[in-house]
Design a binder for these strands. Sequence first.
DNA 1: GTTACTTGAATGAATCGTCATTCATCATCG
DNA 2: CGATGATGAATGACGATTCATTCAAGTAAC
Lengths: 214, 214
Amino acid sequence: MARRARKKNGDKHRRIIEAAVKVFAKHGFYNSKVSEIARAANVADGTIYLYFQNKDDILIRLFEEEMAAILERVQREVDAESDPAAKLRRFARAHLSLVEENQELAEIIQVEIRQSSKFMKEYKNVPFQQYLNLISGIVKEGQAKGVFRADVEPGVFKRAFFGALDEMSRYWVLSSARKYSVERAAQEIADFFLRGVLARPEGESGPDSAQGQD
Amino acid sequence: MARRARKKNGDKHRRIIEAAVKVFAKHGFYNSKVSEIARAANVADGTIYLYFQNKDDILIRLFEEEMAAILERVQREVDAESDPAAKLRRFARAHLSLVEENQELAEIIQVEIRQSSKFMKEYKNVPFQQYLNLISGIVKEGQAKGVFRADVEPGVFKRAFFGALDEMSRYWVLSSARKYSVERAAQEIADFFLRGVLARPEGESGPDSAQGQD
DNA sequence: GTTACTTGAATGAATCGTCATTCATCATCG
DNA sequence: CGATGATGAATGACGATTCATTCAAGTAAC
């Protein structure tokens, strides 16, 4: 029964994290009171400090735990496809679906984490790097298979692609108006990129003639 | 000499804004002290309250003033091109150049403004909307001219395109490593999109597909 | 041109509220 | 009984904002 302690720990730890998600999403990190998180989690103020070092720590841990789950899920979805182009579409769909399903969390990751990961210069934000690298991984694979153009810089692509999805999500999260469906948007965004990344969009002749002058 | 007063006003207002840019960029809005801005601007703490309502107001006004200048400049650059595709490339280059030239400001706009524009639910952030609409404007123009595919949703495109540039900027601003040149990245990002947006990448067949509904 | 008075910009020390965090105390369980 | 987890009132720091006061420049009167 000694392990019960751990289990109980896990329980309160969880409850606090979940409460924090709600509270941070509602007021933003800096305007959230620890006591409000405590109230929402149904624990005493002091209890929070048995599970977390301080307020910052709540944010970091919440981010890392949730991010790990997200990474795993998206990874799995992407792995389910074999064609690189399909992987990219799948990534877009998975990303936007996750945002739609976890709006509060998405809001925190988009707004608060960036805020503080800049402020906390030390924090390297590994999970986010990994997430981005899922994308560049797909690109490299596509290039290796000859399906994607070789002159695409994976390091630029991953940011551009992620950025596009992310900005679209922001729209979802911050506005209430849903003009476009997730499916539709994911599809369209992936398309913008894919048609530019595919080695030959349609029946094409040579890649040399591609660009005109500027 | 009575007008000197106004001039002097303008002067201090400016100095405070400029100081705030530095301070906010360095510590983030919430970790910045009004007294530090005052020190940086070489005015007394109280003086700030003669020019701004409160700390939030400093952020909002700084954003709006700087944004107006940015909008005007990018607008002008885009107008200098006539071909929609060229406009898009130009937009990308202008955007990234601005970021490179005003890193502190860019950092604030990316991180702090978003933070607080969520927190201040009322704040509609018109300047940002306008900025985005520069992009959708280009798309619509391109579609009208038949240069861009008609089935592209300008409202999705503007976010995707902006998001891509923005994420790339974040990399510049937050990391110190500059692996890719601005020029190169702008070019590449615009290309990802353009090759997907151009009505006919190469010699294609049917002209019927050109016009469509929106 | 100098003296006396008015105005309002500028100052910065003092105030006042607000939390994050602590810790003395309590409850529970084995 | 300890011991370990939980509590929540009390503490202390901090920092935005205020406001009584100073000061410089303008105006008028002589």
